[in-house]
Design a protein around this nucleic acid. Structure first.
Ligand SMILES: Nc1nc2c(ncn2[C@H]2C[C@H](O)[C@@H](COP(=O)(O)OP(=O)(O)OP(=O)(O)O)O2)c(=O)[nH]1
Ligand SMILES: [Mg+2]
Ligand SMILES: [Mg+2]
Ligand SMILES: [Zn+2]
Length: 567
DNA sequence: GCCGTTTTCGGCCCGACTGTTTTCAGTCG
């Protein structure tokens, strides 16, 4: 059976191909439908009737029937016919900065160009400058865009840019005439990866400030620089977008630049329905254009009839409706987090001793920490063999007795083998407080097989947490193929916790998967997976991800006190 | 292609910057 992700991928591809034929509005409709399919809490097997499908927002008769065809036959005639009309490589073209659907279509029509390689040859041969609407500058811009695309494509891991974000803020703040600097965009929303960094700068003299900004020595390229916004490239090809605003617009500006785009569009529709107009300068009367709100985000939301919405959930996934009806959830916060699961020490491949890790957790304000080093029977490098785990249990008890102010829990990160069994003696597992069971091998097994491995692992009473349940490594490796709906349902029944692994390259479960897990009735344990005390700070990413999944304190195991854990 | 407590047809968010153009299209945020 075709998975929801695969159906969504097909709908996306249709949108891309339609866009490259200059079809209006349909691409948006297909993308909206794809989003619905990807995020629905219904299982694929429930999507087998037109009634169910068309009941979903953004899915009508036409797309509904196409989804049915995909589910029933595994393919889609409409997609095949589109693929015949538009070469697949053409979607590369619009990934280039400055090249959109109109240009791509023109390039194909006038010069037969359908790939980046062909475009590069034509540009270097000076063939683009004579096209209607293009010129020498555009030709050079396209050459630059191709170079840039090849050198640095892709998004950045949020945990890896945290220091850059702080440094930039300091840089901008120290410029004469800058009154405030706020990081907005996907970073403020707490996404696991960011496409760029977006800053709102408060200033009554943007012209002078902008001059200083583009002359900072961190700037490697100025993409665009105008009176109200500027876009620069800094180290490693990271793009930084800046918008300048004044106080009366500051809230509306933050709202706009924090996004998401879908959230913005939804708010603007709400405004229209009320006879108003929302832009980044404020909320305005539709007729007189008089400003109604704009100084703070709260003021704008309020004037639209809503409570203030926390940035992490501004994704148009029901938060606008919830805010209008006054039923926004109270999301988990750092203050709610009492304990730390899943840290590594020098006993396996961590950098710090049990004692050092425990002290760092205590000083960070946690009441307990579960030491969960790698088990090694499956050949995991640096992992502990059974006798070493026994020794470590004694050591952990030892440190726990001697150290005040924090409780140490014994634990292990055991490996789920290709049959779903764990690579640690059952007797030991039964003794441990916290058993994290993770898949570290056999990623290429079938969806059925991998799902079955996890279900088998969960059937083991000793297992507390399923570690990084999808196995994704951000920007490196996709998740293995797994039926999460099934896993969540079983986990909810058994009381097994799902990990939200807070390590920057994982953040697994993702926010949207946390949301599904919550709806299924699961408890989520935020695991730091720290291999060094310096990694403990990444818990903030884990908490933001949990908030993105609409998790409330009651959904998160770490909010329990050590006596309430019932391990 | 989807949608509708003002609509079943006619909208679909709104604005800044660039490069090309003699008044604005295209792209991007
Ligand atoms: N109203 C409106 N706002 C937009 C649009 N595109 C972007 N924005 C706003 C919302 C975005 O969060 C914000 C920054 O744009 P970005 O392209 O940097 O997106 P964002 O940071 O959300 O994601 P990213 O990780 O950078 O890909 O600008 C748009 O088409 N319409
Ligand atoms: Mg951004
Ligand atoms: Mg941006
Ligand atoms: Zn692991």
């Amino acid at each position: 059976m075709t998975s929801k992700n695969e159906i969504a991928r097909i709908l996306h591809e249709i949108a891309d191909l339609l866009e490259l034929q200059d079809v209006a509005f349909k691409p948006r409709a297909y993308r909206a439908a794809a989003r619905q399919v990807r995020t629905t809490s219904k299982g694929t097997d429930e999507l087998d009737s037109l009634e169910v499908l068309t009941a979903m927002d953004g899915i009508g008769e036409s797309i509904g029937k196409k989804i049915l065809e995909i589910i029933e036959t595994g393919s889609l005639d409409y997609l095949e016919s589109l693929r015949k009309k538009v070469p697949g490589t053409m979607v590369e073209l619009v990934k280039l900065n400055g090249v959109g659907p109109k240009t791509a279509i023109k390039l194909r029509r006038e010069l037969g160009i359908t790939s980046i390689d062909q475009l590069e040859n034509a540009a270097r041969d000076g063939k683009l400058r004579d096209l209607d609407g293009l010129g020498k500058k555009t030709e050079q811009n396209i050459i630059d865009a191709i170079d840039f695309f090849r050198a640095h494509q892709g998004r950045s891991i949020t945990g890896h840019v945290m220091d850059v974000v702080t440094k930039l803020k300091e840089n901008f703040s120290s410029i004469e005439g800058v009154d405030d600097v706020v990081i907005a965009g996907s970073y403020r929303r707490g996404r696991a990866t960011v496409g760029d960094l977006d800053y709102v700068i408060l200033s009554s003299n943007p012209a002078i400030v902008n001059e200083s900004v583009i002359n900072l020595n961190i700037v490697s390229k100025v993409r665009a620089a105008g009176k109200k916004k500027t876009s620069i490239i800094i180290e490693q090809g990271l793009q930084v977008d800046i918008r300048y605003f004044t106080l009366e617009s500051y809230g509306a500006a933050l709202l706009y630049f924090t996004g998401s785009k879908n959230h913005n569009v939804k708010l603007r529709k709400v405004a229209i329905d009320k006879g108003l107009k929302l832009n980044e300068f404020g909320l305005h009367d539709g007729e007189t254009q008089e400003r109604i709100a704009g100084r703070t985000e709260k003021e704008v939301y309020g004037a639209l009839g809503m409570e203030w919405i926390t940035p992490e959930i501004r994704e148009d996934r029901g938060e606008v409706e919830a805010a209008m009806e006054g039923r926004l959830p109270e999301l988990v916060t750092r203050e709610n987090i009492k304990g730390m699961f899943h840290v590594h020490t020098s006993w396996s491949e961590g950098n710090d001793t049990i004692q050092e890790m425990a002290v760092a957790c205590r000083d960070a304000g946690y009441e307990y920490v579960a030491i969960c080093d790698h088990a090694g029977s499956l050949g995991i490098a640096g992992g502990l063999m059974d006798d070493e785990i026994r020794d470590q249990i004694n050591k952990i008890h030892d440190v726990d007795t001697k150290l005040d102010g924090i409780t140490l829990l014994t634990g292990i990160e055991a490996n789920i083998d290709s049959e779903g069994h764990l690579d640690v003696q059952q007797e030991i597992l039964d003794d441990l407080d916290v058993v994290v069971a993770s898949i570290h091998t056999g990623f290429n097994q079938s969806r059925e097989k991998i799902t079955e491995r996890i279900l088998t692992a969960m059937a083991n009473d000793a297992v507390t947490i399923i570690g990084h349940p999808t196995g994704r490594l951000l920007t490196k490796r996709d998740s293995y193929d797994i039926d999460l709906d099934k896993v969540f349902e079983r986990a909810a029944g058994l009381g097994t916790w799902m990990e939200l692994n807070a390590y920057p390259t994982r953040l697994d479960l993702s926010g949207s998967n946390c949301m599904k897990a919550k709806r299924a009735g699961c408890t989520i344990a935020i695991g730091s997976d720290a291999h060094d005390i310096a990694h403990l700070r990444y818990m903030t990413l884990g908490i933001k991800t949990a908030r993105r999944g609409w998790l409330e304190p009651g959904n998160v195991a770490n909010t329990k006190g050590v006596d309430e854990l019932s391990l």
